[in-house]
Design a protein around this nucleic acid. Structure first.
Lengths: 236, 236
DNA sequence: CGCGTGATTGAGCTTGGTCAATTACGGTGG
DNA sequence: CCACCGTAATTGACCAAGCTCAATCACGCG
């Protein structure tokens, strides 16, 4: 298997071709357009390396094939907010026309397809359905952002963790029904939910003790009682 | 002068026409297209009444002419997050295609221009510059949302207040250089910054005591030391 | 001038953060 | 296959920022 070397590495044997339904998650549907796929390039990014930097040029957008990506905003003293995680099937990097508003980094070794924004813009101009799809995606990012603001501004630690787990559990996945993969560390989760890693650990273990979830291994959780978890999330 | 009656009241003597540069704020420029202006309708919404409800149809978008608007997300037990404030010149309501992701309410008696989304879509399809403008606005909403997530997830109470005041002070305004109007209550500010109204009050009064600002009246603040305020905001 | 809403101020309290040990996991090499 | 090692996770004891509850205070409007 190909190893992930430091930083970004473009694989030259592109264009890349979709290998069947396994990779075709709903959010990615819009990108299964022949005209665009021809311009997709496979990119490998190793864990904790940048896909792009805050303030850099916004020339490409990406689709996650494998691994996971986080978008990050930093304060000068190092405090960090992870604004979003992107898992296989997700598209990111469509935001920010002139320059990137935030950095994107690989949470775990990631395989991405990179598309030139120019091509996307061009395609959007000639295909209104595709343009519409793009706007829907932008709209959905904004919905998630507002949801997250509610979480960060008004929910308790337990409600935040529960909301996070419910969101993950509700993602369409290929594998087992109640098994969730957590490719990120406790620290990443903390920086996404506005908590400390100790609090994340404590709440997860409390949920385990209360038989709502099982901590099968550090990066694998099983949800026993999704209904209870939903209640705990505070949205009723 | 026309009084604001309960709820939304459409004024029939539209189409409305821009009354010169006073109302032409930067963000609104894209909407100064003759083809669109012809479809603008003046709408008056009185304080604390809804412009539109969460989950409702997303048929219109709006430009604020006077007053102020907040977008609101609620938890079932009444906890509230104000995701954004819209002041004169701002556009809102472009988000959410099928249904509204959040409610919009008047913070103070508001005068709005309402545009049918259908017309906007149509215009975007025939004028790529306008379409681009729309995407820029969407992009900017997302930038603000991520900025707010950083604030809510990682900043202290004082940093939140300072950030909020700096953002207001940096808005292009017509009036005095260092005078800021706060059309919203302390409770509104609290629900925007993820604090309680008591904390907002305490921090504002501390900033006053420390001579960084002057609380001229409840809804009017003067910024003496914008540099200090920027430092306090934590972004350096 | 009086009244009601919104703002201020104060006194405790709670949640989640901080600091500090362990403990466990996962990847590597023998 | 197993021992080892560095990183990540867990757990505990204590602490503090900001919340809650409660009592004035004051502004704006009739």
């Amino acid at each position: 298997m190909q190893t992930h070397i430091a930083g970004i590495e473009s694989v030259r044997e592109s264009p890349w071709r979709a290998s069947g339904a396994a990779l075709a998650e709903p959010a990615a549907k819009a990108f299964e357009v022949k005209a665009l796929e021809a311009f997709g390039t496979v990119v490998l990014v190793s864990r904790d390396h940048e896909v792009y930097a805050e303030g850099g040029p916004a020339d490409y957008c990406y689709r996650v094939v494998a691994g996971a990506v986080r978008t990050v905003k930093l304060l000068p003293d190092g405090r960090r907010q992870i604004t979003e995680f992107y898992l296989p099937g997700d598209i990111f990097g469509l935001d920010g026309f002139a320059a990137r508003y935030f950095a994107a980094e690989a949470v775990a070794d990631a395989t991405l397809i990179r598309y030139p924004r120019r091509r996307i813009e061009a395609l959007a101009e000639e295909d209104p359905r595709f343009a519409r799809r793009l706007r829907d995606m932008a709209s959905d990012s904004l919905r998630k952002a507002h949801e997250q603001m509610l979480l960060l501004g008004r929910k308790s630690a337990q409600e935040r963790i529960a909301s996070f787990l419910v969101a993950l559990a509700e993602r369409p996945r290929k594998g087992a029904a109640d098994g969730i993969e957590l490719p990120m560390t406790r620290g990443d989760i903390a920086d996404h939910l506005g908590l400390t890693l100790e609090t994340v650990s404590r709440v997860l273990n409390r949920l385990h003790r209360d038989d709502v979830i099982t901590l099968a291994s550090t990066h694998h959780i099983e949800v026993h009682d999704l209904a209870t978890l939903r209640e705990m999330a505070g949205e009723v």
